[in-house]
Nucleic acid binder design. Structure first.
Lengths: 350, 350
DNA sequence: ACGCCGACTGCAAACGGTTGCAGGTGGGCG
DNA sequence: CGCCCACCTGCAACCGTTTGCAGTCGGCGT
């Protein structure tokens, strides 16, 4: 009865296995493996035959099996807070390009919501799935740091620093100084700062803290006081900046300039100002940070940083560890640059 | 000499294996496997013991091994042209959330450059790595379509259609109509269209074709003629829109309205217009599409589509196939909505 | 009291490669 | 002309789970 073996799932292509290739090429599976992975100890003639057989069967090794046997996955984990943000999307794109070119696959971990983030750190899905990890501007929370180190695999951070871990970043304090000095040189004294909400998703980004601190220092070294009532925050994104600006406008005195930790916040602030018909830069100057793609559109003065490039650099750092066994931890600091556009001017003599 | 086995890589945690758990719990590996995966044929007491042992050793199964044995990867491939674009980033975020909640990992394939894309289709790295794929607004090129189908695994497209494949999308023609009729009702007759460059990366996006066609139809059904010299294109992104607008301005007659296939193009066009001091909407009205986050900032009239939601829907479609064996191919069309802002008005009586 | 049955559990064979080790072969050198 | 040694290649033991099949055991129907 049931020897009537009907090929129910006949559609399944049933990929060729290494044995098929070996048989076709008339060699052993071991030789196929060595040939295909470019090992040196295979004669050219044999290799050629294997290559042809593999081609013929359009064979490609099962990543699972080879991973299991070799202990490596040829996959790298990218941990991102919000892919939808310009900065992160570009960093991902930059890293991806380099990794893909090097033949690695990229597993994306998006911590966009608190629930997702918690599950991430709880289950640490990276455990045996990847060979290395790059984390983008992730929080330093003690527990999280430990969880990451516990993975005990190559790790690079972008836009953040963890002791003993390689990183790629800008000098946040210096970048902020660029922005603040620009305003100061124009004669501003009442300068407000809009920062990303520290409690945004339940964690604050590292650079956020650095930038706030940098702001205070820059103000101080310019002989000005960073008034705490002029330091407000909003959740990450345009809306956050808009709300923060609203808060600022509700205060007793409107500052003559606003520095925003990210362009998206600055842009939100601009929207609020425009809707309130407050002239920019006539009454309030605005300067942001990152040089978001949209900055040129709203003519925003900002501090530019090379995001795509940082992503690429982070990836390359990882590859060096992976492929060349490089072991030194490095801290790459890339330069920033003030881009003066139309949202800043001398304060109104008012 | 070398029996002096120095534990060079002593740091390696050497994850607990299923055998360790089995030993500790006093059962066989098979029972551990069954217990952990919630199979029904394990007695509660045994299961409990296994769970504790696993917890104790903080065991988690090797994805590689279980993938190899079970034939599935618990991973889904996301194929994206440009993560850095608002639309794609949001679609990814939407899909990610759903997939992560369902316990799937996400492998990202970013086709950002021509080289990467070619390599992708040539090597089809998805082959044994994922259980299913969602492609975002990818081209229909005959060869590529075949390559995707050849994978012979569940597939869902977002913002595109392939015969016989489930999809999530908007009705592009209808959406365009919304925009065009809005302009027409305001009295515009000379309406230009800026579209994404078909030869952008060597391929045109599907929706691009649909939207151009939709534009022609909408114009026709409004009794107007879509003048080919008023249909220009630019590469994807703000700069493309800016250049396209420049081209338009160089033409013999400046149209009274411009419809852009994407908000990013529209925003680029706005920048050009503003820099040229051409009043918007006084002299030229502009309407875009997508309701990009920045649209509210530049006060752009546009046609909104729910991107995050579409990503989620696409993911859910996939899960239904994967988890419930659903086999019907569906085509989910989500609604769009005209958002009138400040870049459109009746044409200047000039 | 005995056979039958269902509920659990263990055995062992895959899954598809990688790699240390050993064997075979031909060439170069003494 | 024989020996030693590279250089190739094959053998077989893993890598860590999943799963079909078979065996065990207690309880229940008759």
């Amino acid at each position: 009865m049931q020897d009537d073996v009907q090929p129910v799932r006949s559609g399944r292509p049933r990929h060729a296995s290494i044995i098929d290739v070996a048989t076709l090429a008339g060699v052993s599976p071991a030789t196929v493996s060595r040939s295909l992975r470019g090992h040196h100890n295979v004669s050219p003639a044999t290799r050629q035959r294997v290559l042809e057989a593999a081609e013929e069967l359009s064979y490609s090794a099962s990543p699972q099996a080879s991973g299991l046997a070799s202990g490596r996955t040829r996959t790298i984990g990218l941990v991102v807070p919000f892919v939808t943000r310009w900065f992160f999307a570009n960093a991902v794109a930059g890293a991806y390009q380099v990794l893909a070119d090097a033949g690695y696959d990229v597993l994306l971990y998006h911590l966009g919501s608190a629930a997702t983030r918690d599950r991430f750190f709880e289950r640490m899905p990276l455990t045996r799935r990847v060979d290395a990890v790059v984390t983008l501007a992730l929080p330093l929370d003690e527990e999280h740091t430990l969880a990451l180190r516990a993975l005990d695999m190559p790790l690079v951070t972008l836009g953040a620093q963890i002791p003993g871990v390689s990183s790629v970043r800008i000098d946040d304090a210096a970048a902020v100084r660029l922005a603040v000095y620009h305003l100061v040189h124009q004669g501003h004294e009442d300068i407000a700062m809009i920062s990303g909400d520290q409690d945004d998703l339940g964690f604050g980004f590292l650079s956020s803290q650095d930038r706030c601190e940098g702001f205070r220092q820059a103000m101080a070294s310019a002989g000005l006081r960073a008034r705490e009532e002029l330091m407000v925050s909003g959740e990450y994104g345009i809306e956050g900046g808009a709300r923060a600006m609203t808060a600022l406008m509700a205060g007793p005195t409107l500052p003559t300039a606003v520095f925003a930790e990210y362009d998206e916040l600055a842009i939100g602030a601009l929207r609020t100002l425009r809707r309130a018909s407050i002239p920019v830069p006539g009454r309030v100057s605005v300067v942001g940070m990152d040089d978001h793609e949209m900055a040129s559109v709203v003519d925003l003065t900002t501090v530019a940083q090379p995001v795509l490039e940082q992503g690429g650099t982070a990836a390359r750092l990882l590859l060096e560890v992976l492929d060349r066994g490089e072991t030194e931890v490095v801290d790459v600091v890339v330069p920033t640059r003030l881009v003066v556009r139309g949202t800043t001017a001398a304060p109104h003599p008012n």
